[in-house]
Write a protein that binds this DNA or RNA. Structure first.
Lengths: 276, 276
DNA sequence: ACCTGAACACCGTTCAAGT
DNA sequence: ACCTGAACACCGTTCAAGT
């Protein structure tokens, strides 16, 4: 039914890298060194590779967030000098590109099944959303980045395949994929920005919503009749509901344009579908 | 027809603040000081206010971008020590809140006219987009911020008024405003990130699009049939076209939900409108 | 070839001390 | 009351020097 993007397990990278006991991995079993061969103080150091750097960076991101992910902090975790990192990644920005690409592995894009188009598009978007919610601050990394890494390309191919199976013409499929992923990213960003962890974050968000509700209700009704009237709906939508609502709107919009010709669709002014 | 948000001129704040000739404003005319009253080396200094700080910050943003807008750079422009700023703004983040709110003054939200709903929603979004494109990196500031400042509240009130005039039920109006502004912000962000200034930025973007087109075309057609097929549409959409397409999609989606009841709309699975 | 230390040119924020 | 200098605890990136 639903295919993992590379056929392997959903999370092929090692997440245990933040532990402090590295460097003895090469030995298959734990044998004490012979006493006449006195141990170097830093035994067989596992060499620095781009993979280790990226995986460790993701670990810091998950545990402490984007602001904690500095080149110096990362080097410390890897027990190197921070300048050494530049031999393998070139840039902090490039590093974030790589981190983003590696987590895209977790996203599942369904193989098209006839008659289930809308539902499958939703499944894809929900999977993408789950990825964002599973990795702290990842939405902040993704929001101004185009996923052109290897996993990004595979995801894009599968996404185009799914979107076109619903009858979207070329231009609408090409842009629709962008629009959907932008939507999911932006929604995840907004959710995580006012809900930092998962600890008491839900409560914190609730307190803020209550305060905002009180504030909106307290506005002068002559100048702000709509905000006073809508104080409830504006503040009561939780993240899940917002997400599903937005998904519904965009998918309906895509389907409304599905049959039309590409070229005159944009130039003509209105022509929305009938109101239900 | 179209009302400016506060009835005044569209840009009520002074933009000439980056000039280096401040401090003699208090004198109505230019009179040389009497020779026995020897001039202090720094004559009547104009006092630091939150307004001056915010306006100057916007000037730096426009001219040099968000990364150049540091507290130290800002203090230098204002001829103060950087620590002095904290007496008036508390925070760099709070400063950015204030900058964002001040430019919201430029956005025009139309007074509803019967029969022109879709077109008026587009006008509002285009006005918002113009604001973003007029101020370098403003989209980066806006993307993770909820506009709760005075100008933000006024804009929200007017937006809710317009959206409800089209028959959207409360929840859809409340969320629709969010969705539209998120869309405009994200699209402006993407445009400005690959198109830094306006100088040769369009050419730079064109070169990138050509490279990407060549790359997509060169992919193995057996693994990436859709990307190879869609190389044209994916890379040929310019920013204006993307924007109008997305607007069309979202508005169509909003109208599709306009007549439905709020409560079971989200829970029910599919039920999209007929395909044209 | 790979890694390191040290240096460069910056940051945001705080706070005791001055006027 | 408002402003300042100096300090604190950081940044990303470069580069000559080492092994």
């Amino acid at each position: 039914m639903v295919a993992s993007r590379n056929g392997g397990p959903p999370m092929p990278y090692d997440e245990n890298h933040v532990s402090r006991s590295e460097g003895r991995r090469r030995m298959p079993e734990e044998i004490p060194p012979p006493p006449w061969r006195r141990p170097k103080k830093a035994p067989p150091r596992v060499p620095l590779t781009q993979d280790r750097i990226v995986v460790t960076a993701l670990g810091i991101l998950d545990a402490e967030g984007l602001d904690a992910l500095s080149m110096r902090r990362l080097a410390q975790e890897l027990k190197t000098g921070h300048a050494s990192l530049y031999a393998h990644v070139g840039n902090r920005d490039e590093l974030l590109d790589l981190v983003f690409d590696i987590v895209l592995t977790e996203v599942e894009v369904p193989e098209p099944e006839p008659g289930r188009w809308a539902e499958q598009v939703k499944e894809m978007c929900r999977s993408l959303r789950r990825m964002f919610l599973a990795h702290r601050d990842l939405a902040r990394i993704a929001i101004d980045r185009v996923p052109l890494g290897p996993n990004g390309m595979v995801g894009m191919e599968r996404t185009m395949n799914l979107l076109r199976s619903g009858g979207l013409h070329d231009e609408l499929a090409a842009y629709g994929g962008d629009l959907l992923s932008t939507f999911v990213t932006a929604e995840a960003l907004e959710q995580s920005s006012r809900n930092p962890g998962t600890e008491q974050g839900r409560e914190q968000a609730g307190v803020f919503a209550d305060q905002l509700h009180g504030y909106l209700k307290s506005l002068p009704a002559t100048s702000f009749p709509n905000l006073v009237h809508l104080a409830g709906p504006i503040t009561s939508l939780d993240s899940d509901r917002r997400f599903e609502l937005g998904l519904e709107i965009i998918i309906a919009g895509l389907l409304a344009g599905a049959g039309e010709a590409a070229d005159d669709q944009v130039r003509t002014a209105g022509s929305p579908p009938a109101e239900s």
